[in-house]
Structures are given as C-alpha cells and as structure tokens.
Design a protein around this nucleic acid. Structure first.
Length: 452
RNA sequence: UCCUCGGUAGCUCAGUCGGUAGAGCAGGUGGCUGUUAACCACCCUGUCGGCGGUUCGAGUCCGUCCCGGGGAGCCA
C-alpha cells in the first residue's frame, strides 16, 4: 500500500513500515550509505531516504541515481538525527522504476530561470515553484466552486464553441470543420468561434435558475504580448437575477476575501514558498486584503483625484476617456494602497449590455483593481429594459438578428440582474506573486507559442 | 502591434579597440564526509539565435527575420 509523502510528513509514523513512490531530487553519498531526497508532488517538502550500502542493488542502482529518477521505496520511518528534517526513512528496498540520464535531463538541482522552464513545459511541474503553482491552482479552483455552491449558485457549462461574439471582448478564434463533408461551408450553418466570454449565455440561465456561475476556458485571438495576457485562459463569471450593482460588488468582495482566506489556510506550505522566494511580503499583502475594506470611488471621482494629484501622466486624464494602466496603478497602489473598486463609468467606453444609469451618461459598471496587477474583476448590472438595450445595441452596430435570443430575455419576464468576470490566472498571479501569467497556467498559449 | 533591452557550453553569464571564445554551476572520473544547493582534485563541453552584407579577418560593425525580458496598447 503506497502512502503519499505529504501524509507521511504530517503523520510522522515513527517505527512504521511504509511504502511510497516518487522522484529523486538529489542524492548525496556518505561513507556507508546514501541520502536520497524523494518527492512525489503531494507536497513541497521531500522525504529523506537512507539507502544503506548493504542493500542488494546499492552499487548497481542506488549509486547511479540522479535527479529525476523514479523510485519505489519501502522502509521504516525514523526520527532524523540531523537538522533539516524531522523524519526520514531507513530503506529496506529501493526499486528504480524509471531512469533519467543525468547527461541529458534538463533539470538540475539548481534553480532555473522561469523563462528556461517555460521552454520545457512538460518537465517544469517537477520544480518546486511550478509544482507549488499547480497545487495552489487546483486548490483555488475547487475553492471557487465551494464558494458558489455553498451559497446556492448553480454552475452552468456555457458553450466553448459559439456563434455570438461578446462585444468589446476582443478577437475570436474561428472554428471550422476543415472541409469535413456533409455540412457545407459552415459546420454549424454559420460562422462559429471559440468563446470570448460565457456571460451572455450565463444570463440565460440566471433568468431561469436565479444565481448561476460559469468557470471555464476562454479564448482571445488578440496579438497581446504581455505578462498579463493569454490566448487561452480561465474565467469565473457569476450572474445573479434580481441583483443590482451594489449586490454585485458585495458578492465580488466576499468571494475574493473567501478565496484568499481559504488559500492561506489550505496551502500554507506552498504560500510560504511564494512569500520567501517569489514576492517578499506576499502573505502580509493577502492578509491585508482579507482584513480591510476595499476602497470605493466612482469613475468621476477617480478622474477628479487624478486631475488634482499634480502628477504628470503619459496619457491624458479627462472625463469620458478610459482610465489607463498608469492611472489605475496610481490609484490602487499609491492613493489607496489596497484593492479599489471603481464604479459608474461613462456609457461611451463600456459595452452595450451594461445598465444605463439615471443620469443617462454613465453605466452601472464596476472594476476591481488590485496593486501590482491592475484590473482583476470587471462587472456590471445588466440592462434589463428592452427598449434601452435595443437602442444601445443599434448604437453599437450589433447585428440585432443574431441576438434575438438575448433580447428575448428582456421581452419575457425581464428582471434586474448583474454579474462579473474574474480572470482566474490574474487571481493566481495576485496570490502567488508570479510576475508572468505564463507561469500560473500549466500550458500557456500565447501568440506563436503552443508547443504541446 | 508599438517602444526598449537582450539571445555566447546543458544552465547562469563574462568576452576590452574587429584578430577564430572563457568562468561558475551541471555532467564524467577519483577521493572524502549523517549529508542538506555537500565538499576536494582532475577531465569533457560551442552552428556565439537564423539568413545576408561590410572587411584580409566578424561573437564584436550594418541590414533583415525569429525568439525572450521589461514597458505600452487591447483586455481578464
């Protein structure tokens, strides 16, 4: 019976005979035996194995072990007499099941640059930091589902292939059958693409099931080459019926605090690694977000603040112009030094589906900005009035015929509703401190890059 | 896509005024040690990102393309 190293390190079953399997991180030889550091991916920490020279395969196998080799170990758990680890396993058997030729294996015991590791995305999860990201990503993804499920939200699997663009959400990848016979020019009878957002379809289910959410992959064919953009990324999009902008913000803030708090408790070991080696002060930063209120200002107030700041910005500040990265960073990093919610943007710079405020000039939109990343959440109350929505769509040049289904939601039992989108990888960047988004998704897809 | 800085050994980098390339680590061999990124000695390692140009001669200068870092735009 194989036991996970995480379990052995937590339970410390001194005197017990155990069996486990993993990959050798390092081998150090001492006179009559060798130290093997073995990890199985279940935790950041490895388990030290004492392999005595009396073992039958000591000279043939154990002395030849190197970083990356796969082994199955059986032995007795003992208290370690030396510093660095509490327990170790005195091996009665070490079976090598997979060699890793040290002359060719790219991973060394040393640190590697993240850029180099990206070139070997099939091997990089074996490193401490990328392995930790993998565990944290999994934990956080499950926490997202827990947050919504515990509050009665219903998950909706919105389509990956879609025929409706979500205006303002960037370029779509085109989907074709590559000339597969029998369906004419278009497999679906019309042009189709990969989804850029599940929001519009989520609204359909919100108007039937109440509170819903999507959590799935999203695709953008933008030629974006930055540390914050991917061509394929995962988005969390709740959509709530009978909900206004205030309720929307409340859910977004509660969700962020829940996720951070849960992660700090549930991934303490990995989070400590990020705090020590990736972003100093990360844990304090995250605790601060959990414990403090988010700052809130309207777009109009933000413009006033920027104009009154006396700062010289590269891009102009004026009511009606969108806030640039430098403006958002100044507000969230310098003025407030904590997460900041900016609301009520000019209608002219926001998509058609956002609800027009009574002033006729602004919409019930909200962006949550966080220090270091910028925009992490974007949401709004949706326009529920058929006539207003139709006018906005015509104004925006939307092909009305393609969106009758969306307009129908406002024709039959329309209700106020609201929702937001959260970029899962942006959140992971924020919680791990990883500077480049390519490090927080297992297989990053960027322009010109998709090796496997 | 734009601005900017880079691409030299498996990795991280140095390479002066244009004169045919070096260090540390990794790897190999041997030694030593309850070791912790072990240590000591010796040995091996190159399409200097690709293509083209200038030159007696290019890692070095010029052009162009590809890739990466940082910043920006677009956005999540």
């Amino acid at each position: 019976m194989k036991t996970r190293i995480k379990t052995l390190l937590a339970d410390k079953p001194l005197g017990a005979q155990v069996a486990f399997a993993g990959w050798v991180r390092t081998r150090r030889d001492a006179g009559a035996f060798s130290f093997l550091e073995v990890g199985d991916g279940s935790s950041l920490a490895n388990l030290q194995v004492i392999a005595d020279s009396a073992l039958g395969n000591y000279d043939s196998d154990i002395k030849a072990l190197s970083t990356g080799c796969a082994v199955i170990v059986e032995g007795e758990v003992k208290a370690s007499p030396a510093k660095g680890q509490e327990i170790e396993v005195l091996a009665s058997r070490v079976e090598v099941v997979g060699w890793a030729d040290p002359a060719r294996y790219p991973l060394q015991k040393k640190r590697h640059s993240l850029e180099f590791l990206r070139e070997i995305s099939h091997l990089r999860p074996r490193t401490n930091v990328i392995g930790a990201v993998g565990r944290v990503r999994s934990y956080l993804g499950f926490a997202v589902h827990r947050f919504f499920q515990e509050r009665g939200f219903v998950q909706v699997h919105t389509p990956i292939i879609t025929t409706s663009d979500c205006e303002g959400a960037g370029e779509m990848f085109q989907v074709t059958s590559g000339g597969a016979p029998g369906k004419g020019e278009h497999f679906f009878g019309r042009p189709a693409g990969l989804t850029v957002s599940g929001q519009l379809q989520a609204e359909v289910y919100a108007m039937a099931l109440g509170d819903v959410y999507t959590f799935g992959p999203t695709f953008r064919a933008e030629n974006s080459n930055t540390s914050r953009h991917l061509a394929e990324f995962w988005m969390i999009e709740p959509e709530m019926a009978f909900c206004d902008l205030q309720g929307n913000m409340a859910v977004a803030v509660e969700m962020l605090k829940f996720l951070l708090d849960d992660l700090l408790a549930g991934c303490a070991e990995d989070m400590k690694l990020f705090d020590s080696f990736v972003e100093k002060g990360l844990l304090d930063k995250l605790r601060g977000v959990v414990e403090h209120e988010f700052a809130r200002i309207t777009y109009s107030e933000a413009v006033e603040r920027l104009l009154a700041s006396g700062k010289t910005f590269t891009f102009p500040v004026a009511w009606g112009l969108d806030l640039q990265s430098e403006h958002e960073r100044y507000l969230t990093e310098e003025v407030f030094a904590r997460p900041l919610i900016v609301t009520d943007y000019p209608a002219s710079i926001k998509p058609f589906y956002m609800r027009v405020n009574d002033d006729g000039k602004t919409v019930a939109a909200m962006d949550i900005l966080v220090p270091g990343i910028g925009e992490i959440v974007g949401g709004s109350q949706r326009e529920e009035r058929h006539d207003v929505l139709l006018a906005r769509m015509q104004e925006a040049g939307i092909a009305i015929d393609d969106y009758q289904w969306y307009l129908d939601l406002r024709l039959y039992g329309s209700a106020p509703h609201a929702g937001f989108g959260l970029g899962f990888e942006r959140l992971l960047q924020f919680v791990t401190g990883m500077a480049n988004i390519r490090e927080v998704i297992p297989f990053p897809r960027t322009p010109g890059f998709a090796p496997c």
